[in-house]
């Protein structure tokens, strides 16, 4: 009997270890061309806190250089961004972030207000798989799941990704336990240039009113920030496509003034910011490249300092060494990307 108990324990341990290893191996690593799925989990490696937290989709993680904010103003910031991040995902990411730190300012990009329902599983995965388990993650999954998804696939991702055994590459083994750093405090860097082109004419909509579900989460976000004495800033990134309708702009303006929030639509401020969309974008005007993101950071950082009097941490020993390393990595990546472009 004793032998059977020992054997059973060892076999169960083998089973758990085997499934765990298989899960690690089979989960997408997002280390190739699509790195967006690796962003959310990078936050947990942070060793210092941040005065500013950005939340939102690609219009934040590609448009603000956190390292430039540090270099110019000594602002500590982090972008908790992910691809097509929906507003409930932004809310729960913020809720989770507040368990780790309490920033002075939260900046939310309002483009995702246009989505009132869960969209695509692939984007859900890129936001949710990287989150650590907490009540926020559970609520986030429940709010985000499309009809075909099931909760258990999030609990045991191997049930979702098991069929990837057909497409395993060397990278899956290489990054099985440790991944490369893909962002700079959440900023996704691109140095290449592709000038802005012509955008298609905006399609008229049947109804311009934001959905109740989206607005409910904006209310929750506002309350969460107020309850924690955090300044919530609503922004619309300066990129003109996807189209940001005037009716939408008006609704956000009204909401901000009703709730005592600041809302900045940066589309009309392109010139003031100094953006030149013939050189400051890498994908024909959808997102900013390094040059554009640094200009945005110089402009917005000044506004943050002027408005909220954010402290300059550049001489604070708590941060200097950490940010020295971050700057080094930032510059190294610039060099690498430029070299790749030349090749």
């Amino acid at each position: 009997m004793k032998k059977k108990i020992i054997a059973s324990v060892l076999i169960i341990a083998f089973l758990i270890a085997g499934l765990w290893f298989a899960q690690r191996l089979l989960m997408p690593k997002y280390m190739g061309k699509i790195v967006e799925g690796a962003m959310v989990e990078e936050y947990y490696k942070e060793t210092t806190d941040h005065d500013v937290i950005f939340i939102g989709d690609c219009e934040v993680y590609e448009n603000f250089s956190t390292i430039k904010l540090w270099e110019e103003y000594g602002i500590t910031s982090y972008i908790r961004g992910s691809s097509q991040q929906l507003i409930w995902q932004s809310y729960y990411l913020l809720e989770e972030t507040l368990k780790y730190e309490k920033p002075k300012v939260v900046v939310f990009n309002v483009l995702s207000l246009k989505y009132d329902k869960p969209q695509k599983e692939a984007y859900n995965r890129m936001t949710l798989d990287g989150m650590k388990w907490s009540k926020s993650k559970v609520d986030d999954i429940k709010a985000s799941m499309t009809e075909d998804e099931s909760f258990i696939d999030y609990v045991f991702p191997i049930l979702r990704y098991h069929s990837r055994w057909k497409e395993l590459t060397g990278d899956d083994l290489k990054y099985i336990f440790e991944k490369d750093q893909v962002t700079h405090n959440g900023y996704y860097m691109r140095v290449d240039v592709r000038p802005q082109g012509e955008f298609p004419e905006p399609m008229p909509l049947d109804d311009y009113t934001f959905g109740d579900n989206a607005m409910k989460y904006l209310d929750m976000m506002t309350k969460l920030c107020k309850d924690n004495d955090i300044e919530l800033v609503l922004i619309k990134a300066p990129t003109e496509y996807p189209y940001w309708y005037e009716e939408w702009d008006e609704q956000v303006s009204n909401y901000a003034s009703e709730n005592g929030l600041t809302y900045i639509n940066m589309i009309p401020l392109q010139e003031e910011i100094g953006l030149d969309m013939s050189v400051d974008t890498y994908d024909a005007g959808l997102h900013l490249n390094l040059s554009g993101a640094e200009k945005m950071s110089v402009y917005f950082g000044k506004w943050l300092v002027d408005t909220y009097g954010l402290e300059d941490h550049r001489n604070d020993p708590k941060y200097t060494k950490v940010y020295e390393e971050k700057i080094e990595y930032y510059n190294k990546m610039i060099e690498e990307q430029r070299n790749n472009l030349e090749e």
């Binding site: 083998f14 089973l15 298989a22």
Partner: peptide, 19 residues
């Protein structure tokens, strides 16, 4: 039971189910 555990892992990985 070791082979059963192995078979279970095989089912989870190589099973045709889900998405």
């Amino acid at each position: 039971h070791f082979l059963l555990a192995l078979l279970l892992i095989v089912i989870v990985v190589f099973g045709a189910y889900g998405e």
